[in-house]
Write a protein that binds this DNA or RNA. Structure first.
Lengths: 235, 235
DNA sequence: GCGGGTAATTTGTGATATCATTTATATCTT
DNA sequence: AAGATATAAATGATATCACAAATTACCCGC
């Protein structure tokens, strides 16, 4: 009686201060962020509702929010998919990430305290551990936590949601890259970011931030997109 | 039998290719963009539904989308308001606008054709006409059309939605500024942007774009926010 | 008059039902 | 057998209903 391939949505801890709609949003967001839905995946309201054992109503609200963040694409037919990545879109997303994160880093630096730096150091240590045990999902989340910890120090900051949206749009594709290029997370410029923060050195921070984004994603992602395209759907 | 002050939502042309939810989204988005809801306005699902003669269901989806774009703030109490502007937030939004629009302009320039420039020229002419008859709503929309026409020439562009979100967050406050500083739209650097485009001069385009944003909004907005704050609610 | 607590109202949330649109399947025709 | 057409299934969209949480109104006691 299974209509199509039943969708597997990774579970996340249930927080009882959230409405169901919010929980669904967080759960779908996490799934997309860690790449649980490969690009091109078809999503249906009822399918998601059934997969999570809920009525369509809260699903619809969560999905609408994700579509506004361009994590989910709504076609003219009103069908929904996880967007495919193209070389052009990839280059643009990457450039936008650099522009946004450099901007956010610069404007956060004046507010950086030693406590913040220590917090980021501990996240970076956790990343080393996650890398050792090859926990890719955790690495993705920790990497974001690391950067978020910096950008959020700016008390009036408004760019964080925008940056998160770009991360989200990278998610499904990034997962494919990580799986193909297994030493993806080997290059990280986090130590250099931390050095720049300790020295309160803007120029060094900008360079380290840009390098971290570019060297991590750029070459391997471009490689994946330029090599032969036999067919779009992954296994 | 009127519970509170009945909310007035400006009507927009009904397009029959849109679902009700999409139409509500466009309508609310327009209302916020032109500042029909002053900062601090309380919004309710049922209130909006009643004001537009609809059931709450499509309202909720539209409102969720707008909350994801930070045009509407959802409080812990689950009440919704149009966010207030603060000096700190204003400075950050302005800086983000500059960073994003300079970025988008730079990356669009290679794709600019004479047809695009002509289109932008005609929008600029329409702005002059709207300015003459003091049509502020139209001016706001046309100003966005002008910039959007440029940024959208980049075929792989991904920053447009993000820029629109920042515009949206500025909307309610910008309306207050425009009404207080009546020569707001007098300073426009559109002629200089057009010159830079014709010459395909990146450096000039960057300067003109930044000036257009900064000189239009910066001084008058800052002025409005730093002068006495007797009480928050507008008349 | 002022504070506190209870009742009534308002509001948000989520499930369900109904209808329209779209996609998939089956049937018929040539 | 191929293509067109009709039929069935699935899906999205919206309204309505039921419930819970929050707010407001009201009343009482001091």
């Amino acid at each position: 009686m299974t209509k199509h391939r039943q969708l597997d949505v990774p579970e996340i801890p249930m927080r009882d201060d959230l409405t169901i709609q919010e929980h669904v949003y967080e759960r779908l967001r996490y799934a997309i962020m860690v790449g649980a839905f490969p690009p091109g995946t078809n999503l249906t309201m009822r399918g998601l509702a059934e997969a999570m054992g809920l009525s369509p109503t809260p699903i619809r609200e969560a999905v609408r929010r994700l579509s506004s963040e361009h994590a989910i694409e709504v076609l003219q037919n009103r069908r929904m998919t996880v967007p495919e990545m193209t070389l052009g879109r990839f280059e643009e997303l990457l450039a936008l990430r650099v522009a946004l994160e450099v901007h956010a880093a610069e404007r956060s630096l004046p507010y950086v305290s030693n406590i913040i730096i220590e917090n980021m150091e501990s996240i970076d240590l956790e990343m080393d551990a996650a890398l050792t045990r090859n926990d890719l999902d955790r690495l993705t989340i920790l990497n974001q936590d690391f950067h978020r910890a910096l950008y959020m120090t700016n008390p009036h900051q408004v760019s964080m949601p925008v940056i998160e949206s770009v991360w989200l749009q990278m998610g499904p594709f990034q997962r494919q890259v990580i799986e193909n290029v297994k030493d993806y997370y080997k290059v990280d410029r986090h130590k250099e970011i931390l050095d720049a923060l300790r020295a309160r050195d803007v120029a060094a921070l900008v360079i380290a931030t840009e390098s971290d984004i570019r060297e991590g994603m750029s070459r391997s992602g471009r490689q994946q997109l330029t090599q032969s395209h036999p067919d779009g759907h992954a296994a």
